[in-house]
């Protein structure tokens, strides 16, 4: 199966600031990706270049086998919902939906109307009079009902409460099940989507630091706590990502291939062992006390993932 999108050595510089630094990865067909990373890590820039809204400084981008720039065949199959999307000020909700219906070949009007009801969006209201959450809902409706074979959602939930976000996740999952397509979710709310996403792309300071199956990551990262010497010993079985000390006790986050044997070993060392969440892994991989990415560990992690 050929990938839906391929990015090779993509670099983007804005007046001397490197937003993306030789980024390479590919997106396989009909999967849900989580594009994770801190603010300013380069997520939005990456999606803008993939959708030809922005230009690369160097490197290759291929979407549906072709370059997306001014490529109608490619662009008509992409939908990019961004948090900062603006709408012409003379349009009401129903106009925006009518415009999207004109543009997307796969638009499902009935589904769109159901979503309007689900999100309780007033169809006659002008976009200028929508609340932040309503604007987010509108973007989500366009993104879902477009049924675009490749859809990007760039932090689509701003201003949405927990209930509305759950509606989004549920409808996304249900519709994806019936109409499989490639979806890229860029989000901060990692815990909320960790069961949804199949593949994780973690970007930090313009570089991909993790490109792995979500399932493979589960159980790969654990937090052990106990006497420093025991923690030291256990930490040697994997890569230590983080540690805090309290007197003679340490708590460390360790990444490795942990099976039942390692769990028993931790227990026999007198250590408390807890699996860490995807969110914790992301936090540990993208924060360092000095504010820099942990070069050694991430390089190791990346090459390990690449070898998979």
């Amino acid at each position: 199966m050929s990938p839906v999108a391929t990015v090779t050595d993509l670099t983007k510089q804005y007046r001397g600031v490197t937003a993306l630094d030789r980024v390479s990865f590919s997106l396989a067909e009909n999967r849900i990706y989580g594009l994770l990373g801190r603010n300013g890590a380069g997520k939005t820039t990456l999606m803008q270049i993939l959708t030809a809204q922005n230009f690369a400084s160097s490197g290759e981008v291929t979407v549906f086998g072709q370059h997306p720039y001014e490529n109608e065949r490619v662009l008509s199959r992409i939908c990019f919902i961004k948090e900062s999307q603006t709408y012409p000020s003379n349009l009401a909700v129903r106009h925006v939906l009518r415009a999207a219906r004109l543009v997307y070949p796969g638009w499902d009007e009935e589904f769109a109307q159901r979503l309007v009801d689900d999100f309780q969006l007033p169809p006659q209201r002008n976009v200028r009079k929508l609340s932040r959450g309503m604007l987010s809902s509108l973007g989500i409706i366009v993104g879902l009902a477009s049924r675009a074979p490749l859809a990007f959602f760039d932090e689509p939930y701003l201003g949405l409460d927990a209930v509305a976000r759950q509606i989004f996740y549920e409808r996304l999952l249900a519709d994806y099940t019936e109409h499989p397509r490639t979806i890229v979710l860029s989000t901060h709310l990692i815990d909320e989507v960790s069961d949804l996403i199949e593949h994780v792309l973690l970007i930090d300071q313009g570089r991909i630091v993790l490109d792995a199956e979500a399932e493979a990551l589960r159980g790969q990262v654990v937090t052990v706590a106990g006497p420093v010497a025991a923690v030291d010993e256990f930490a040697r079985t994997g890569a230590e990502l983080h540690r805090v000390l309290l007197g003679g006790t340490a708590r460390a986050t360790v990444r490795g291939d942990f099976g039942a044997a390692e769990h028993n070993r931790a227990r026999s060392l007198g250590l408390g062992l807890e699996p860490a969440s995807l969110q914790e892994l992301v936090v540990r991989l993208t924060t360092q006390p000095n504010g820099h990415a942990p070069a050694a560990t991430t390089a190791g992690a990346t090459s390990k993932e690449a070898a998979r």
């Binding site: 809204q53 919902i81 603006t86 709408y87």
Partner: peptide
């Protein structure tokens, strides 16, 4: 106004 909207909808 319309240009950013149209590009967001995948228009060249």
């Amino acid at each position: 106004q319309v240009f950013p909207f149209a590009l967001g909808l995948g228009v060249s």
